[in-house]
């Protein structure tokens, strides 16, 4: 039995995730912060994506369906601030779906695992975003530049997520209700 697999457990963990409305409030704050201050924290052409952190942590906690709802809203917010035609909406929703789906197959409580998940989510989200931008007519030929920036963004966003989770764990105690069935 794998340490990371829980497909053979005959129990259900009922996790009361964060409510949607406060999470949307956080997303608005995150997008607003990024649009105001992103220019000042650019590192190797990348900025930490607070929205991705919010989407991944939320979707990992509440699953695909509720995660996707939040993904749509967060993506729409980002598209409206960035002036892009739906690329962030699609990218963020797909990311939320993916994270919500795979988070059911492993223990996603540790900060390292969630941090790595955030990094992978950034890469997935950027790949979807640039794919859609290409379909919308954005000029090709800068894939290497975008990939390089996406790698840096994944690294710094994962680091931010881990730092947040470590600090959060010191102050907030998540309650997990485990119901076991014979």
């Amino acid at each position: 039995m794998s340490l990371y697999s829980r497909s053979k457990f005959r129990s259900i963990e009922v996790v009361p995730g964060p409510a949607l409305l406060p999470t949307i409030g956080f997303a608005i704050l995150a997008v607003f912060t990024q649009t105001m201050f992103a220019q000042f924290v650019v590192f190797h052409g990348a900025v930490p994506s607070l929205i991705t952190i919010a989407v991944v942590l939320y979707a990992a906690k509440v699953g695909m369906r509720r995660g996707a709802v939040f993904g749509i809203i967060a993506g729409l917010l980002e598209d409206s601030f960035a002036g892009t035609g739906g690329a962030w909406t699609l990218g963020t929703t797909l990311t939320a779906l993916a994270v919500g789906g795979i988070s059911r197959t492993f223990f996603s409580d540790g900060f390292a695992m969630l941090g790595a998940l955030v990094g992978l989510a950034v890469l997935l989200r950027d790949a979807v975003f640039w794919g859609i931008m290409r379909l919308e007519g954005y000029p090709p030929g800068l894939a290497a530049v975008h990939f390089h920036a996406a790698l840096w963004q994944a690294a710094i966003t994962a680091a931010c997520a881990m730092a947040y989770l470590i600090v959060r764990a010191r102050f907030i105690d998540d309650r997990t209700i485990v119901e076991r069935y014979p």
């Binding site: 105001m36 992103a38 220019q39 900025v47 929205i51 960035a82 975003f129 640039w130 963004q153």
Partner: peptide, 13 residues
């Protein structure tokens, strides 16, 4: 008054 939130494109508001 604003920049691209993800710095993916070079645009300002």
């Amino acid at each position: 008054i604003g920049y691209d939130p993800e710095a993916a494109q070079h645009l300002v508001t």
